[in-house]
Amino acid sequence: MTLGIEVNKLQLRYGSFTALHDLTFKLDGGKIYGLLGRNGSGKTSLLSILASFRLQSAGSVSIGGEAPFENAKMMEQVCFIQESGHMNEGFSVRDALSLAASCWPNWDDAYAAKLVKLYDLPLKKRATTLSRGMKSALGVTIGLASRAPVTIFDESYLGMDAPSRYTFYEQLLNDYMEHPRTIILSTHLIEEVASLFEEVLIIDKGRLIVHEETESIRTKGRAVTGPAEAVDRFAQGKTVFGEQKLGRTKSVTVFGELDDAACERAISEGLELGPVSLQDLFVHMTKRKGDEQ
C-alpha cells in the first residue's frame, strides 16, 4: 500500500519564531524521498507534523487523502523514527519491540527478529542504557519492521558506525523493493545516501527551496573552471553559487539546464565543465553569511 502526502501552505510557529513558512508540496508516494536541510532548517518540525507529533499552526496536511492528526487510522500508518527514539523508562529492548509490535498493524515479527540478530541487539538490556549506536539500531529495526506505509527516518542512523549504516541502507533498499512504501530519509550524510533517493526535497530556514528528481538536480549543477573573464562571461544570466579564485583561474558553480550548445561554447572558450555532487550543491544553496569564515 502506498500513501501520498500533500502539504499545503503549512506553517509552524513556536511563539514568535516561525519554523515553517508556507510549505507546499506533493509526494506521490511509493518512493524513497530524501529530505535535506541544515540544522534548524525546519526539517524535524516538518517531519513531526507529518507524524502527528505536533499540530501545525496553519495550513493543511493530508496523508492518503486524510488529515493525520489524532486520526487513529492514519497515525498507525506513519512511523517516525528519530535518532534516540522515545523509549519508555525502564523498558528493555524486548519490551520496546513488543510495544511496537502491538501497535503497528503491518508489523513483521520474523523480520524484526532478523534485524535484531543482524545488529546484535541485547534483548534484555534497558533501552535507555544502550550506546548511541545501539539506540539507533533499535530505532531503525522498529522503523523497518513496522512496514508502515509511510516510514520516516530522521537522521536515525547518525550514531551508527559505518558498517551498521551500510547494513541499514542495504536492508532498507531490499525491504523497500519487496514491500514498496513511502520512505522519507532525512540526513546530513548526503553523499552516502543520495543514490537511494528518487526525489529530493531541500528545506532552508523553514522554506522549501528544491523539490526535484535526484537525477535532474545532479545534471543541473556544473562547476565551471577557467580564466576568470571567460568564466564571468559564461556565467552571465545564470544562477551562480559560490566562487573560488586561484590566481587568474576562477571556478564557479552554475545551477540550471545547460544544453549541448552551451556546453560546447564553454569548452571552446577554454572552460572546463565538471560535475557537482549533491552535497556540494546543498552546501552552496544553503550557505549563510557566517559560513565563509
Partner: peptide
Amino acid sequence: PLSLASFVSNGVTRRH
C-alpha cells in the same frame, strides 16, 4: 511524562 511519548510515537492517538 513516562509513557505518552512512547505510545504516540508508536502510532497511538492521544485520545486512545
